[in-house]
Design a protein around this nucleic acid. Structure first.
Length: 152
DNA sequence: GCCAACGTTGGC
DNA sequence: GCCAACGTTGGC
């Protein structure tokens, strides 16, 4: 079982939305590096940290679990939607998504605290200018972040 | 709203 | 294949 961190803007889709829906597809990833991780590495049962970006309280806010592995992201074929990609071929879809299921909220672990923690220095998230919306998390980093919530 | 950093595009 | 221009991300 592997660990991941998924970024989301809570104004669009938050941990609360996920809790309401229980299971949600993770559509709209339009970055090749992130896509390749979903395609090749993200497996059923993997654990996911949910991270809120571009908002007041930036940081890790909860946990989810992968409940469906990569399949075509149909939003790429919706010309009215925000994730439309006119260059994607329906017979060979360019973009994929996975489904995740809500597990629990966590007490916020802010980006500020994560940046200040030497144990997390190697996370892409805390490195300057990183824009990956999906990134791997090591077991040590996972444990450290859970510790930082003060809940465990 | 600003702007630095990054990925993508397209001319050559 | 280079690289400048452009658009987007995302913290602040």
């Amino acid at each position: 079982m592997a660990y991941w961190l998924f970024k989301t803007e809570p104004d669009t889709f938050s941990i609360d939305t996920l809790k309401q829906q229980k299971v949600s597809c993770w559509e709209g990833v339009r970055n090749y590096q992130a896509r390749n991780m979903m395609r090749d590495d993200i497996k059923l049962g993997d654990q996911v940290l949910i991270y809120h970006s571009s908002c007041k309280d930036v940081g890790v806010v909860g946990i989810a679990e992968v409940v469906r592995e990569a399949y075509p992201d149909h939003f790429q074929f919706d010309p009215e939607g925000p994730y439309f990609d006119p260059k994607s071929d329906p017979d060979n879809p360019r973009w994929i998504m996975v489904d995740i299921e809500y597990r629990r909220h966590l007490r916020l672990v802010s980006l500020k605290r994560m940046k200040a923690n030497p144990a997390l220095a190697e996370m892409p998230l805390v490195k300057r200018g990183n824009r990956l919306s999906i990134m791997p998390v090591t077991e040590a980093q996972w444990q450290e972040i859970l510790q930082m919530t003060g809940q465990f």
